[in-house]
Amino acid sequence: CHSECLGNCSQPDDPTKCVACRNFYLDGRCVETCPPPYYHFQDWRCVNFSFCQDLHHKCKNSRRQGCHQYVIHNNKCIPECPSGYTMNSSNLLCTPCLGPCPKVCHLLEGEKTIDSVTSAQELRGCTVINGSLIINIRGGNNLAAELEANLGLIEEISGYLKIRRSYALVSLSFFRKLRLIRGETLEIGNYSFYALDNQNLRQLWDWSKHNLTITQGKLFFHYNPKLCLSEIHKMEEVSGTKGRQERNDIALKTNGDQASCENELLKFSYIRTSFDKILLRWEPYWPPDFRDLLGFMLFYKEAPYQNVTEFDGQDACGSNSWTVVDIDPPLRSNDPKSQNHPGWLMRGLKPWTQYAIFVKTLVTFSDERRTYGAKSDIIYVQTDATNPSVPLDPISVSNSSSQIILKWKPPSDPNGNITHYLVFWERQAEDSELFELDYCLKGLKLPSRTWSPPFESEDSQKHNQSEYEDSAGECCSCPKTDSQILKELEESSFRKTFEDYLHNVVFVPRKT
């Protein structure tokens, strides 16, 4: 048989008469490798580009789960590009990614509803959504962080984005990388972005840091009482949809009607710091009717980097990364020049730590249904340095008659930039024990000054392991946590139920 035959053949030295091919099969003959313009397919066939392209389009058009959109890589027609490569849609070739590779997620039936953290986790790592997304989240724990972890990498949506009755959302900033909504599939009414009845939605994105392009379709905003109209108009300008909307697409009466839409800028007039305090004062603000001013709200939190936005980490279910302080308005003076500047002394802060701070007014709604208010920009203030805590785990070892090696770990709280350490030492008198000992005694162990690591005695271990207080009263049991108490109650309830079950099964009433 021919060298490319495997198993047997019907005619000697003829690659077209093989029972099976050793390498690849091409047009009725066995070959060692697939010549151009053919590609290896499933490690035994040679196919042309049209064959591989037909497989790709067949799966793409069917949208069946589990099928493969075949691509070409290293002269092979394979189910998908290997790690580190992405497909070129024009020629199906796998090309190296520039940075992290995109991950295209194809949605069944063309859309997916995100109504819980669990459903959001199914899209973790996706960068391109081939379909439409509907966000409908009523509640949950730590929602802002969970949504950002699972949806934060999405850069492109081919269909539309719909935010509907998501009472738990305060902001859409968890879509931190969303840059493009194509609108290839539109919501009824030709809408590519749809926001309806979101009672706590206050911000779409921080438009000073976020760009969003909507290729096709219109915007729809109705019944978002805490979303200011200025935020919607800003989205029109940034996304390129200005002029597409009709009169009733953006409701003037049901958007922002319960919001404090600040239209003035508060400026800080005085800032002073110490290692654990920050004193702030800002310019006074009074609405047209000074009785509408209820006070100020001061927001602050630790910020290692200057990239904080107002609604980071917030949701309507209680999660809030900001510390909020309510401040009463100052006494009002008739003389504008003698107006008191409101302020606040922030206490209990960490030394040498940068804080993000902003302040906003708290006002009631005027009778004319106009909203007044003022808010400052987010500023960054760093507390002063102070003395560091003591170095940890000092170790001293003498390696000769004239040297001592000293080692330690950095302090747990540096409280500033540590530039150097101060080492103090003092000579001590020799131990009298060394002169009084009889060095001729056998088995004498000389006193040693070398360091030995501390260890816990058996008594201390027994005390720590004991669940009861000892007789001397030195140790006591740790208080039980809520989960331990709940577990004990469940076990007790189970024992009672099981005992009742045994009584009912074992003891049967005697027939009379």
Rank of each mutant, 00 (worst) to 15 (best):
E302I: 07
V363N: 14
N334W: 10
N399Y: 09
Y355P: 00
G131H: 01
K234G: 13
L392Y: 05
Q216S: 05
H210L: 03
L186Y: 07
Y300L: 04
I357M: 01
E283K: 07
Y223R: 09
T371F: 05
D367L: 08
C317R: 02
E109Q: 04
K177E: 11
W352I: 15
N224S: 09
N248G: 10
Y355T: 00
T254E: 11
K267C: 05
K226I: 11
Y160H: 15
L219S: 09
I135R: 00
G183K: 01
H210I: 14
Q199K: 13
S396D: 15
L252A: 07
S376T: 13
N320P: 09
L219E: 03
K407L: 07
R138L: 05
P342S: 06
D335C: 10
V381H: 05
S230T: 04
S171R: 08
L180H: 12
L169C: 05
L227M: 12
V397A: 03
P336M: 02
L294I: 06
K360F: 10
Q121G: 02
G139V: 14
I135L: 03
Y372L: 08
G140S: 08
R244G: 11
L293Y: 03
M235V: 12
S239R: 10
E283H: 07
Y372K: 12
Y305I: 06
L212Y: 02
V390S: 09
G152W: 09
Q382I: 02
G256P: 06
P351I: 06
R165F: 15
Y167A: 14
G348F: 14
S260Q: 12
F358G: 05
I129C: 15
N307M: 05
R176N: 02
Y167R: 07
D115W: 04
D257P: 04
S398P: 14
N255E: 05
G131C: 01
I188Y: 15
P288G: 06
V390N: 10
S260H: 09
W344R: 10
K337Y: 15
E231T: 09
A120G: 15
K226S: 05
G243V: 01
N136R: 13
V397T: 05
G343I: 09
N142M: 06
W205G: 08
G243F: 15
Q199I: 08
D367H: 04
T371P: 12
S338K: 06
Q258W: 13
C228E: 02
Q306F: 09
N198M: 05
T383R: 00
L169N: 01
T241M: 14
N190L: 07
K226E: 08
K267W: 07
L153T: 12
P288A: 06
A144P: 04
N248I: 09
C105W: 00
R247M: 07
E302Q: 13
I379H: 05
I188P: 04
K112L: 11
E155K: 13
R182F: 12
P288Q: 07
L108D: 01
F299E: 13
I135S: 00
S319L: 06
Q203T: 06
L201K: 00
D276A: 13
E148L: 07
K375T: 14
G313P: 03
V324H: 15
T383H: 00
S116K: 14
T386Q: 04
E246F: 09
L219A: 10
K226H: 02
T361L: 08
V170R: 04
F175N: 00
K209S: 05
P336L: 11
H106M: 13
K209A: 05
S333R: 09
L294C: 07
G125M: 11
T383I: 01
S260A: 12
F193T: 02
L108T: 05
N263Q: 05
E122T: 05
W286P: 15
N255A: 12
S166K: 00
L204S: 08
V308S: 11
H341N: 09
L280F: 04
A120F: 05
S171G: 06
S274R: 14
K234Q: 06
L252Y: 09
Q245S: 12
T254I: 09
S171Q: 06
R291C: 14
I181R: 00
A251D: 02
F365L: 08
D197L: 14
E148G: 05
I135T: 03
T353N: 01
E237N: 14
E246S: 08
G131P: 00
G240N: 04
R281F: 07
K350G: 05
N142P: 06
S338I: 03
Q339M: 07
W207A: 07
E262P: 06
F221M: 14
L279H: 14
D328F: 09
T241P: 10
K218M: 01
I214M: 06
I135F: 09
C261H: 04
C228G: 05
E148K: 06
L153G: 14
D115M: 07
T113W: 03
F193V: 10
I154T: 06
L349A: 13
S239A: 10
L227T: 06
F299H: 07
N320D: 07
M346Y: 01
I154R: 00
F296C: 11
K253V: 08
D377K: 15
K226M: 12
I378P: 03
G189S: 05
M346F: 07
R291S: 14
K162Y: 07
L204N: 04
S366P: 14
I327N: 01
R281T: 07
F358T: 08
R347K: 14
L266R: 01
A356K: 02
C126A: 01
T323R: 05
L169S: 10
A303P: 02
Q314K: 01
